[in-house]
Amino acid sequence: MADSVLSSRPALDIGQSQHGGGVTIYELRGLGLATMQTRKGQHALLRDRIKQHFLLDLPMSPAIARAGEIAFAGIGPNYWLAISESAGPLFGMSLRQIVAPLASVSDQSGGYAVLRVSGHAIRDALAKGFQIDLHPRAFEVGAAATTIVAHIGVTIWRCEDNADGNACFEIALYRGLAKSFSSWFSSSAAEFGCDWQTQAAP
């Protein structure tokens, strides 16, 4: 048993797609996720360390900064969600080593489901639950917000628009709430035609 492989399971069950294609959704799989909080008085050193190691400026506001396959989203004062596109559950440990002793890191690779949503009607669909202004002028590429949707706490950030010019967002929420979120999302997006896609785990 000890030599076998544990397969990871997505947080979200694929919903029923409709015609229309106004909205697409899929779950990002195999992500490395970790929360990172500054140790007392280590703020400046932590910023330098992150800059030096990941070549990015740690966001000091509700925003997401990316460099390569790493991103940091500001989710509170001195508090970030760090994302690696493929490092999975080992990311937390490696990040901890990189930032020690300047920050506390906790693996959250299983704690959150991260969903990528896009499409020409995505803002109209999200407006049925997000009580924040996602208009392109109010919520620019790289903006992030930690908010409530359908009584579920989420963090949302805006990605670069898709090649077809449609807006694209990623939404992180507690894994255990993924089914309730998807119940809200699928009923909100159905009128536009929701295309449920899968992304193979790396």
Binding site: M1, S4, L6, S7, S8, R9, P10, A11, P89, D107, S109, G110, G111, R175, G176
Partner: peptide
């Protein structure tokens, strides 16, 4: 305790073992 994405596989492996 295992990261939650492996929770399903873990309980199945445990029942098997």
């Amino acid at each position: 305790a295992v990261p939650a994405q492996f929770g399903d596989a873990t309980i199945r492996a445990m029942m098997e073992a």
